[in-house]
Computed example of a mutant assay.
Amino acid sequence: MERSQGGPMAGRTVLITGGTGGIGRATALGLASMGAHVAIIGRDHGRTEDAVREIRSTGGQADAFVADLSSQAEVRRVAADVLRSYARLDVLVNNVGGYWSTRHVTADGLERTFALNHLAPFLLTALLLDRLQQSDAARVVTVASNAHVRGRIDFDDLQKERAYSGSAAYGQSKLANVLFSYELARRLCGTSVTANVLHPGLVSTAFGGEDPGRAQQLLVPLLRPFMKSPRHGAATSIHLASDPDLHHVTGRYFAKCAAKRSSKGSYDESVAVRLWQASADLVGLTTPATAS
């Protein structure tokens, strides 16, 4: 596969989940314009191919992979496809995510918010980690949200079977993103791979539109004029994926392209380790991702 000869990301291969619209698509376009060879994972074949065509129309290099990442079988299949397609992988952007006001169950019998927002990036990162470590300086970038501040990891009811609310499920999944990123950074200490997490800001996208709650239906139209565009919302993801000054920066939380403090609970290492093991059990990883 040819790579662009110019740009600060020339020669780098970047995989972006949820790259068919919103922040993910804008991230793909931005990194491709910097010379990266971009691979997009999307759930819908038509939308994924459309995103790739847009990137190619601007002179960028892009490939499409189609998978529903709420399914662990699909995560494993697409990871195998990526490994067959690329001899090297320099950046993984865990961007895919969703919000549902009512409880949905995946093909694996898991609550969809937790499965897609947390377990999918956890499993995909683990499956691609060896290839990432073969790069001279790889990066794992995970898109979280400031909603993690209100999140709580309920180990007695991770799947929200007893009581479900969209905001509680989403907050838990976003806190899980932050805890995962910090624990991954600790486990990869001394390797060539960094792991950072970010809050993109309030961005005007179709996020949550599949199953919006009443409050969302009322508030989003009022807030939309004040929301960032997807291009501006992608700025921190692009920054973490590409900025040479972040070569050795790991285990940090970013917003507006700057390192920030995340919630107090997100720094609890005992919770992070417990979540890691629970996640490994749920995705069937007998050997969770660690530095090799």
Score class of each variant (00 low, 15 high):
Ser167Ile: 07
Arg214Pro: 00
Leu129Ile: 04
Ser4Lys: 14
His118Lys: 06
Leu158Cys: 03
His239Cys: 14
Thr113Gly: 10
Leu83Asn: 05
Lys160Thr: 04
Glu111Lys: 06
Ala185Glu: 04
Asp130Leu: 05
Asp243Asn: 09
Thr250Asp: 05
Cys189Asp: 15
Gly42Arg: 09
Val283Arg: 02
Ile153Asn: 12
Thr58Arg: 14
Ser181Thr: 11
Ala28Cys: 09
Ala234Asp: 11
His232Met: 15
Ala67Val: 10
Tyr253Met: 13
Val78Phe: 04
Gly7Val: 00
Lys228Met: 10
Ala215Asp: 11
Ala115Gln: 04
Phe180Cys: 10
Thr287Lys: 06
Ser33Pro: 00
Asp81Met: 11
Cys257Gln: 14
Ala51Asp: 00
Leu119Gly: 09
Glu210Thr: 03
Gly24Met: 00
Val197Asp: 15
Gly209Asp: 11
Arg25Thr: 00
Ala36Tyr: 07
Ala215His: 02
Leu89Met: 01
Arg77Asn: 12
Cys257Tyr: 04
Ser71Tyr: 09
Ala291Cys: 13
Ser263Lys: 07
Val193Thr: 14
His247Thr: 13
Asp268Lys: 07
Gly42Met: 01
Asp81Phe: 09
Thr194Val: 06
Lys256Ala: 14
Tyr253Asp: 12
Leu202Arg: 05
Asp81Cys: 08
Lys264Gly: 04
Val52Tyr: 05
Asp154Val: 07
Leu198Arg: 12
Ser70Val: 00
Tyr99Gly: 02
Val38Leu: 09
Thr58Ser: 13
Leu127Pro: 06
Asp281Lys: 12
Arg231Trp: 02
Gln216Leu: 11
His148Asp: 13
Phe254Ser: 00
Asn196Leu: 03
Ser181Ala: 14
Ala67Pro: 11
Leu83Lys: 08
Thr236Asp: 13
Leu31Val: 10
Arg84Glu: 15
Pro221Leu: 03
Leu198Phe: 06
Gln216Tyr: 10
Ala272Tyr: 06
Gln216Arg: 09
Ser70Glu: 05
Phe254Pro: 01
Val14Gly: 08
Thr142Val: 07
Gly46Lys: 02
Ala234Thr: 06
Gly30Val: 06
Phe65Lys: 10
Gly208Ala: 02
Leu188His: 13
Ala32Trp: 00
Asn146Gln: 15
Asn146Val: 03
Ala163Lys: 07
Leu132Lys: 10
His232Arg: 14
Tyr164Asn: 07
Val91His: 03
Gln277Met: 08
Ala169Gly: 12
Ser135Ile: 01
Gly265Ala: 10
Asp130Ile: 00
Leu15Ile: 02
Ser262Cys: 11
Leu15Thr: 08
Gly98Met: 11
Thr58Gly: 09
Val82Ile: 15
Ser70Ile: 02
Ser263Ile: 08
Arg3Asp: 13
Arg12Phe: 00
Ala289Pro: 13
Ala87Trp: 09
Asn177Ser: 07
Thr102Asn: 08
Glu269Asn: 07
Arg112Ser: 06
Ala80Pro: 01
Arg56Met: 04
